[in-house]
Computed example of a mutant assay.
Amino acid sequence: MAIDDILENFELFDDWEDRYRFVIDLGRELTPFPEAERTEDNRVRGCTSRVWLTSRLEGSPRHLFLEGDSDAHIVKGLVAILLSIYSGKTPVEVLQIDARAILAKLGLEAHLSPMRTNGLFSMVERIRAIAADYALDSGVTA
Rank of each mutant, 00 (worst) to 15 (best):
Ala131Tyr: 10
Ser84Cys: 02
Pro34Glu: 11
Leu26Pro: 01
Asp69Gln: 07
Val94Asn: 09
Ile85Ser: 06
Ala99Glu: 13
Glu58Met: 09
Ala72Pro: 05
Leu30Asp: 08
Phe33Met: 02
Phe65Met: 05
Glu40His: 01
Thr39Arg: 05
Gly119Arg: 03
Thr117Leu: 13
Gly27Met: 06
Pro61Ala: 12
Leu83Phe: 03
Val44Thr: 08
Leu7Lys: 14
Phe121Ala: 01
Val44Tyr: 08
Glu11Ala: 14
Leu12Arg: 15
Leu83Arg: 11
Tyr20Ala: 08
Ser60Tyr: 12
Leu78Tyr: 09
Leu12Phe: 04
Glu35Phe: 07
Ala80Gln: 04
Leu57Cys: 09
Asp18Ile: 00
Met115Phe: 02
Ala101Pro: 00
Arg126Phe: 02
Glu8Thr: 11
Ser60Asp: 14
Gly68Ile: 09
Gly139Ser: 12
Pro91Tyr: 07
Leu7Thr: 06
Arg126Ile: 05
Ala132Glu: 15
Leu30Cys: 09
Arg128Ala: 02
Phe10Lys: 07
Leu106Lys: 11
Val44Trp: 08
Ile102Ser: 01
Gly46Pro: 07
Ala132Met: 12
Ser138Phe: 04
Arg19Thr: 04
Glu37His: 11
Glu29Trp: 00
Ala104Val: 00
Phe10Ala: 02
Ala110Asn: 13
Leu12Tyr: 02
Trp16Asn: 10
Met115Asp: 11
Arg50Tyr: 03
Glu58Asp: 14
Thr48Gln: 15
Ala2Glu: 13
Ser84Thr: 08
Ile97His: 03
Ala132Gln: 15
Ser70Val: 05
Ile3Asn: 10
Asp15Ile: 06
Trp52Glu: 04
Phe22Cys: 06
Phe121Gln: 06
Arg50Asp: 11
Ser49His: 05
Ala129Val: 00
Arg100Ile: 01
Asp41Gly: 00
Asp137Thr: 10
Asn42Pro: 12
Ala104Pro: 00
Thr90Gln: 07
Ala135Asn: 06
Lys105Asp: 15
Trp52Arg: 04
Gly119Lys: 04
Val51Asn: 03
Met123Gln: 06
Phe121Thr: 03
Cys47Glu: 06
Arg116Ala: 04
Leu64Phe: 10
Glu67Ile: 00
Ala129Cys: 00
Gly46Arg: 08
Asp98Glu: 13
Arg21Ser: 13
Ser138Asn: 10
Trp52Ser: 08
Arg56Gln: 14
Leu95Gly: 07
Tyr86Glu: 10
Glu40Asp: 13
Phe13Tyr: 15
Ile97Gln: 05
Tyr134Cys: 05
Gly139Trp: 09
Arg43Lys: 15
Leu95Glu: 01
Pro34Trp: 02
Arg19Leu: 10
Asp5Gln: 14
Asp98Ser: 13
Ala2Phe: 01
Arg56Met: 06
Ser60Trp: 04
Gly27Ser: 05
Val124Arg: 08
Arg43Ile: 02
Glu29Gln: 15
Met123Arg: 07
Ala99Ser: 15
His111Thr: 05
Ala80Phe: 04
Ile102Cys: 01
Ile6Ser: 07
Leu83Lys: 10
Phe22Lys: 09
Glu11Asn: 09
Thr48Glu: 13
Leu7Gln: 11
Ile102Asn: 02
Glu58Thr: 09
Cys47Ile: 11
Ile74Glu: 06
Asp14Thr: 14
Leu108Ser: 09
Glu109Trp: 01
Leu53Lys: 03
Pro32Tyr: 10
Asp25Pro: 00
Glu11Pro: 00
Pro34Ser: 09
Leu103Pro: 08
Ala72Thr: 13
Val124Met: 04
Ser113Tyr: 12
Asn9Gln: 15
Asp5Thr: 12
Arg50Val: 02
